[in-house]
């Protein structure tokens, strides 16, 4: 527990340094989310495909992009990419496990409030959604999406360990990633014959308890798995 306490204390410095900006960003995010979610009724009615992609982008990627640039992943000397704090804290008597945990706390602060905001807004904005969902299935729906956040979104937190990447290789893997998402998305549409969100609503409605259980398990596993990945990556990387 001591490590979490120290990690939270260290994360506090970074979070406090740009607190006004963060609140502003949350407001901005709320407005963008609100405008975007007004088309949710359309999505439910016509299975409007692009909505899923935009939702994923808003849900997973946006919070990470909200981080102040000065604290984001950046190119250091040579081909070294990392967040500055990872280097700064390793020069101080801070155990690597604490560094990892402080990054995870920061990522949590930049994702969970935004994501919960989006999920709550869905309920507020869309009347058809309100009609089709019960309190229990809504809880399951939120759990599923938080699991998605931890399983996918925290890969970004873990990637902050950085390392020495060739810029060409980096560009190539970005292309592969985009291609991979596109293929997955197309395959999902083809196999399930419905959108991703629609599918998760179905899961939450039909198997709420199972969905909650699997989600919690995923959250627990993902949270620990990505921390281990990040710690290993920090140990492996050369911060020269």
């Amino acid at each position: 527990m001591h490590t979490w306490k120290q990690a939270a204390w260290l994360a506090g410095f970074e979070l406090k340094a740009r607190i006004k900006r963060s609140l502003l960003m949350l407001a901005f995010y709320t407005i963008v989310g609100f405008i975007f979610l007004t088309s949710f009724d359309n999505y439910l009615a016509d299975n409007f495909y692009a909505f899923d992609l935009l939702f994923l982008l808003l849900f997973i990627m946006f919070p990470a992009w909200m981080k102040p640039k000065i604290f984001q992943m950046q190119k250091m000397d040579g081909d070294l990419w990392t967040v500055p704090a990872v280097i700064m804290l390793q020069q101080l008597p801070v155990p690597k496990a604490v560094i990892v945990k402080s990054r995870f706390i920061i990522h949590s602060v930049y994702s969970f409030p935004y994501q919960l905001m989006l999920l709550v807004m869905l309920l507020v904005v869309s009347s058809s959604f309100r009609e089709m969902i019960t309190p229990l299935s809504y809880t399951a729906f939120v759990a599923i999406w938080l699991a998605v956040s931890v399983a996918l979104g925290f890969a970004m937190a873990a990637s902050e360990a950085g390392g020495t990447f060739d810029t060409k290789l980096l560009a190539k893997s970005m292309i592969y990633l985009v291609l991979g998402v596109a293929v997955f998305y197309a395959a999902f549409q083809w196999l399930a014959d419905e959108g991703l969100i629609y599918w998760t609503i179905g899961m939450a409605q039909n198997w709420p308890m199972l969905s909650i259980g699997v989600s919690l398990l995923t959250i627990y596993a993902g949270w620990n798995y990505w921390q281990r990945v990040m710690k290993k990556d920090i140990e492996k990387a050369d911060y020269l």
Binding site: F13, E14, A17, M76, D77, Q91, L92, P93
Partner: peptide
């Protein structure tokens, strides 16, 4: 104590904040 040639990660903080962080670690 390590004083690097190129200081990374301090830019966003004031001297007071940096002192608060560093002094507590030693």
């Amino acid at each position: 104590a390590f004083h690097p040639q190129k200081i990374i990660g301090w830019d966003a903080y004031t001297g007071t904040t940096l002192k608060e962080m560093i002094s507590s670690l030693y």
